[in-house]
Amino acid sequence: MGKRVRMPGNGAPSEGLKRVDPEAIDTIVAAHAGHEGALLPVLREVQEVVGYLPEWALKRVALGLGLSLSRVYGVATFYSLFTTKPKGQYVIRVCESAPCHVQGAQEVINALMRELGVGFGETTPDGRFTLEAVSCLGTCGVAPAVMIGDRVYGNLTPETVLTVLEEYS
């Protein structure tokens, strides 16, 4: 029998994150309640406010929209732009799809990993950056491309990507 390990769970929210008034969640929910298909827009807004989707917030979402918490969680974990775990201040999404790959994405990724000292899915110890591998960002015309926060950078090389990083330090 294989080793039994726990599923990637959601630990207690780490301290030092921004404090959010629980009522802010209810306000978001109230603005969407009654509209069909409200869950995705609500999750987006909650994540904008809280930074991620912790259990306490999704409980309020579930209650407010009359959905089971397991369903809300199931939806939240389906989409790659949602996260149920706290992340770094800036999420670096590196495109790994073929058009970027053939233009040298791997070298850019290696440079980022070396510079930040983290692998995919990990956050730098200072909490600044989380590195993620994603599929095509739709900016392949300037491959290889990387998205930092909501900004996209293209035509990157192992050197230029480090210059871009400096903008965020």
């Binding site: 298909g37 869950l39 995705l40 999750l43 987006r44 939806v75 989409y79």
Partner: peptide, 23 residues
Amino acid sequence: RVGAGAYVCGEETALLESLEGNR
């Protein structure tokens, strides 16, 4: 309506599910 990061949501019925607030 804004998607949340899932290639498969381009498939029309998956897109409808997503619009309805589902996986």
